[in-house]
Amino acid sequence: MLVLALDSSATASVALAKIHQDSGEVEMLAHRRTSDTRSHAEVMARFVEETLHDAAVDPFSIDVIVCGTGPGPFTGLRAGIVTARTVGFAWNKPVLGLMSLYALAEYVFEDARRAGNDSFVIVTDARRREVYSAKFLLENKGYTLVSGPCVGPAEEVPDVAAYGKGAGLYSDVMKTVEGFENHQPDAEYLLKAASRLGLENLSEDTSALYLRDSDAKVPAARKKASISAVTVPGEK
């Protein structure tokens, strides 16, 4: 099964892989990623083109597209989701959404197990001195999401082994695991996480997980100038 995965929740990345359904093996065919978090609108489409070209794959042989739905900074997140939806529409392929923090969970869960943990938390940067986080429970073969994703102050992150860029930024208030302080969700591991969960278990809902409303405040009713509002000299 040919799967194209895109994630733009932090950095921008695209991966193309073949999932061998009998063995469950994921064979990576091509992969592109940026290390910066601010060029998604420029690179996502180019990455799709390049991964297909590298793997010499005809887009019409792709079976499914998997898209990281965040949480992540809004503008970058949208660039990835609209790219996934649009190529999915043009090629008439299903687009499945997967919460982006699964990508990091897939990357770290074996380390977390080796270290003797029962659970772990994935933490990414939400800017404005806040983090996105999701807690996972280790199981015989893998891991399951037990809480999150949510956004909030670093202090409120569950007190278990913490992985990812957000854990690196706020290591003073959480159990940051060394060696993973700069890791971000990536399409390669998003794809592997999707394979572990089973593509048939993924939803076609690719709504962005913003977790925050826009900053806009409904303006308060305009304060009217009135006679009583005028300060009368001598009065306090």
Binding site: A41, A45, V48, T75, A79, T86, A90
Partner: peptide, 17 residues
């Protein structure tokens, strides 16, 4: 800016696809 980026990302995706 943020609004333009949605249309432009989509347009680029459509061009590639």
């Amino acid at each position: 800016s943020g609004a333009l980026m949605v249309g432009v990302s989509a347009a680029k995706a459509l061009s590639v696809a």
